[in-house]
Each structure stands twice: as C-alpha cells, then as structure tokens.
Design a protein around this nucleic acid. Structure first.
Lengths: 240, 240
DNA sequence: ACAAAAGTTGACGGCGCGTCATAATCCGGA
DNA sequence: TCCGGATTATGACGCGCCGTCAACTTTTGT
C-alpha cells in the first residue's frame, strides 16, 4: 500500500520535474536548445523514460502551455471580480493581461513558442481540446463582462456585432500589442517609448469608441487603472 | 560576353527558382517539410549548390519574408494615396492590411512562420537590417498619415502619446486580429462570425475613440470602406 | 590552347527524435 | 522469505536532417 503510493508519487513527481527542467531550458536557451537527450541527462534518467511520461517533445511543451493558460485564466477570473462597474471590469482584464505578460513572462514566453507553429498539430487530441477549453474559458470570462454591461445599459452593441466579436477586438489589441512588445526588439527605436501605457490608452480609446459608459479620457482613466491595479495585486496576492 | 551573361543569368534564375520551390513547399506542407535535401532534389541540383546561394535554410525563408514585406509595403504605399482625407487614408491602411492577408495569404503565411521564432536569429546581419528597414518603412508610411492628420487638425494626440505610439495601436489591432483570424482554427465556433468585418468595426471605433475627424458610425463607414476598397483595387490592378 | 578561377557534387560528421529488445525493479501471493 | 508475472527503465539503433569539404567540372582570361 505505502509502496504503491510511493511509486506513483515518484512518477508524478518526475512528471513535474520534467516540466520544470523543460521550462528552464526553453526560457534560458530557447526552443532549439530543448532536446530530449539533454532533458534526460538533466533529469538523470534515460531518454526512454521520458517517453513513458510524454509521447513526444511537443506534448511536453504543450503541457507547459497548459500550465501557462491556467495562470492567465486565474488572473482573468480575479480581474472580472475586481469591481462592480462593467467598464472597470473590462479595464481590469486589460490590466490582468499586462500583468500576465510582465510578471509571468516565463509563461507568456512559452505560449509564444507555439503560437504560430507546427507544434500544436503534433499533440494528442486530448491536449488540443484542453487548450481549446482554456481558450474558450478565457474568452468566456470576458464575454460575460460584455453581456453584463449590455444588460446594465452601459454598452450597446455596434450594428450586427456579437458580444464575442466585440471581445475579439479587445483580444486582438491586447494580444497583438503584447506580442509585438514582447518579441520585437527595439520598439523603443521606432518611437514607441512606453508601449504598456500606449496599450492602456488604446484600450481606453476603444471603449470610448464603443460608447461604453461611463466615458473616460485617458487621463481620467489612469487613476482608475492605478486603483484597479492595486486591488488586483491585493487579490492576486491573497489568492496564493 | 554572351557567356558571362548567360552564366550569371542562369545563377540569378536559379536563385528565383530556389525561392519559388521553397515557397511552394512551405505553403503546401508547412515549415517542417522544408528540407534542404528535398529542395535540392526538386531543383535538380546537388545540395551543396544551394549553399552557394544561401548560407543556411533560415536565410532562404527570410528571403521569402523580405519578398512578402515588399508586397505589403507596396500595398501600404498605394493605400496612403487613395484619398485626401486623413481618416480615409487611415481606413485604407486597414483595408490594405486586410487585402494583404486575404489576397496575398501566401505571403502573410510565410511572415507568420518566422514571427515568434528562432529563425530570425540565424540570419545574416544584412538580412536582419533589411527586414528592420521594411518594418520601419511600413510603419513610417502610416505615421506620416497620422502627422498629416494632426497638421490638418483632424486629430489631436492623446496626452503624452507620440504619433508612433498611436500607430502602434493600429498596428496591434490589425496584426493581432489578423494573426488570430489566420491561424486560430474555428474562430467561428467561438461566436465570431465575420472576423474581417469585426476588425474594420473595431478600427472605426478606435478612430472615434481618438476623436479622429470626421466622426463616423460603423454603418456610415461601411460605404466609405466599400468606396475605398474599390479605388484600392483599381490602383493595385493598375500598378501591376 | 591552357591555367587559374569559379562553380558543382555527394559522401560524410554530427545531432536530434522516437523505438524496441533487453534488463531491472516492483508486487501480490505462497 | 521467496517466486513469477507485470510494470518500468535503459540506451543502442534507425532514420532524417543540416552544413561542410575535398575532389571534380566548367568557365574565364590570356
């Protein structure tokens, strides 16, 4: 009995160790540097053993991606609860994204490795579904804010646009700018001094463009952002 | 004399042939399927010959990326001339992006392969500069529209935001949504029925959020988009 | 016509992924 | 305590890929 659980525990622990080492290699030396042989050596086992845990290299990376998406999802969940006012909740989602990219860049970076690549295709269907599930949950948590805003009368959907399509807009700008910020070297030299501030500003403009009440200039919104950020950090801190 | 040119011509032609074949393989079978051996076989020469033209595989792909960026740059150039009104010129840039992704997807797809990857690092500095140059030119052509708009009084920059940072916002939303649209399978199932329309709508909202004159509801803007698109297609057609 | 320069070739070294026969270890029952 | 079947660990191996290089062929200039 104790032996069964000991063995199973050991196996479970090793799975975590594999992911841990893999993440370190990915972050330190990039995707190219991650090889199964190296991983096995660092783990202190034979290569074959790795294949008892993961069917191929891609699954390891995608397992890391799943971890990352969970972290983001959690942040979004917290952000959605940070205020009663619909517009502030939406702003908080933006902040949560920013927080994720800046403070959990190790996760964001790993998401980037697989974003436009062939890696996804090599995963087992189960993993693909899982990833899709996280994506939907993430999107769902934001869509709910939009629906609430409409219900309360803070927002009216633009012509023939669904709530999801509106979320898509926010998703695009956040995703787009964060990707650009993150892996474009030297935005600074292009005249973009504070990309993060710019993104917040653009998000604010977009909400104004949607006529999402209450209207807010970016100056006004900055103190709100500060307040939301503080609350967000508190909630995140307490949720550990 | 004729022999000199014949030989040089042959070499030049082969370079084009290499790129042509490489593009086909990339688009048909993905990045993983592109191998130097295969390329050599399809080209009908020995592998070593490839290395007289390109120092490594990545350079081949990045040469394709350069071609792609030139196409985009050309489209942007045309778009910037499609109207006198600053806001319409900006809208045309959005349309040009859309046009690029939809009608020249073979180029856009290739840009995607290298977007967040290790490939860029393996290129020669010269190629890196070239890519950077295209990027700056692209951005510059849009920044100019913003500056013009400010000069004419159609637009006032938000607080402490540079013209480049404003362009960055547009770049983000366009880039972000197009990447999401392009390589996320089944946005449709997420409730996003017409992603292209949604992007145009969001761009419009953003411009309104910036108070870029003249103010336009998305309904109003749709006919403008149609008109601009027609003019764009004409200009593009005539520039071939 | 001929030698030097330029271009071509494909076998080779090295590396990475994933497999599989073999060896080691674990576990329940006698 | 010991045994035999089941589970897990191992690492040499097959295969495919990249980039090199010495040997070979073609082109160029004289």
């Amino acid at each position: 009995m104790t032996r069964i659980s000991r063995k199973q525990h050991e196996i479970h622990q090793r799975e975590a160790a594999i992911l841990h080492i893999a993440r370190r290699i990915l972050l330190d030396d990039g995707y190219e540097a991650l090889s199964m042989d190296k991983l096995a050596v660092e783990l202190g086992t034979a290569k074959g053993t790795l294949y008892n845990h993961f069917p191929n290299k891609e699954e390891i990376v995608l397992a890391l991606v799943c971890q990352a998406m969970q972290v983001r999802l959690q942040l979004f969940g917290v952000a959605a609860m940070v205020s009663q006012k619909s517009r502030e909740r939406m702003m908080a989602i933006g902040l949560a994204s920013e927080h994720y990219v800046r403070k959990h860049s190790e996760h964001f970076a790993i998401e980037q490795f697989v974003s436009n690549s062939t890696i996804r295709g090599k995963a087992k269907p189960k993993r693909q579904e899982l990833i899709r599930h996280f994506e939907m949950q993430c999107m769902g948590s934001v869509t709910m804010i939009v629906r609430d805003a409409i219900a309360v009368g803070d927002l009216k959907l633009p012509t023939k646009l669904t709530a999801e399509e509106l979320v898509f807009g926010f998703w695009s700008i956040t995703f787009g700018s964060h990707v650009l910020t993150f892996d474009r070297p030297g935005l600074h030299e292009l005249g973009i001094n504070d990309a993060w501030r710019a993104v917040r500003s653009h998000g604010c403009s977009m909400l104004n463009g949607f006529n999402w009440q209450p209207y807010m200039t970016f100056e006004e919104s900055e103190s709100v952002f500060a307040e939301l950020d503080a609350r967000l950090n508190m909630l995140i801190g307490s949720s550990y």
